[in-house]
Design a protein around this nucleic acid. Structure first.
Lengths: 146, 146
DNA sequence: CCAATTTAGTCAGCGGCTCTGACCATCGTC
DNA sequence: GACGATGGTCAGAGCCGCTGACTAAATTGG
């Protein structure tokens, strides 16, 4: 039996999450993408390739639509997203990734890959794979939008 | 449509973390502990059995000492913590859990146990154990205060 | 022993995040 | 076409977290 920390699982999940977020954020800032915040990034992360409605973004990020709107306003002003009319619903608008976000994506992707590689080096291929598998399964009962 | 296996690990970690935090928070609120916020809880969680200095709390929660002080002020006013003089350093004060926090702990502990049990039921004993093991290992390279 | 530096903590001010409540426009349905 | 539901905005408030400037006590080095 391997000795396990007595820390509650929540904290165990949160610690590497924050470590990864910090790394990505720092790398983006260094690459010149220093004009957005973590809260904005958490919304931007949920935008689909064909655009996503504000209400849907709000639900997935678990904030109110007002908050999501506030964040999208700033992202739009900074050139990361664009609002397009939704052709299927005149009330709605689709939030789409704009040029600046598309430029940032490869940078973010590279850092995520780098950190995941470090984790795999520390855990070993097998345990890293098990970790991802367990988390993916867990998502089924913890993600209301899975 | 994004394949599950390609969802970045950060989001995979965050989703269950937030689910757990939400559950604990809701249960505490229902039990009458509705007068504190998640930010306050994240600080309170780090207080050791013999009290912890404000500066140390700030480091571990990764906020400035000003922010930690602000949160402790509110926790103190709500009766969750007390400030005691540190006998070994007249500049410092030890933040200790007070009566109300001690009353809340069993409630929080019960919910955490309940949620972990649900997760174990979904993943199976083996995978749940592997998950905790992997996360504990990961902490070695992601927690600056391990 | 005293001056300089470091460390613990506070005060003041600012901006960012998120909420509630109220509101308007459009959609879908009957 | 009336009505409830849905997509979104506006206004106001409070909480969170930061920087900068400060006091007091501890530590270090001559």
């Amino acid at each position: 039996m391997v000795a396990e920390s007595e820390l509650n699982t929540g904290l165990l999940l949160f610690i590497p999450y924050r470590a990864l977020e910090n790394r990505v954020f720092a790398a983006l800032a260094e690459a010149g993408f220093d004009d957005f915040t973590p809260a904005q990034a958490r919304v931007m992360q949920r935008i689909g390739p064909n655009g996503t409605r504000l209400t849907e973004l709000a639900e997935q990020a678990q904030v109110t639509k007002q908050t999501a709107g506030f964040l999208v306003d700033q992202l739009e002003r900074a050139g990361y997203v664009r609002r397009m009319p939704d052709p299927t619903d005149k009330r709605a608008r689709l939030v789409c990734l704009a040029e600046r976000a598309l430029a940032a994506q490869p940078v973010a992707g590279a850092v995520v890959a780098e950190v995941e590689k470090e984790w795999e080096a520390h855990l070993g291929k097998r345990r890293m794979s098990q970790l991802r598998q367990a988390l993916t399964l867990l998502r089924e009962i913890t993600d209301p939008y899975a």
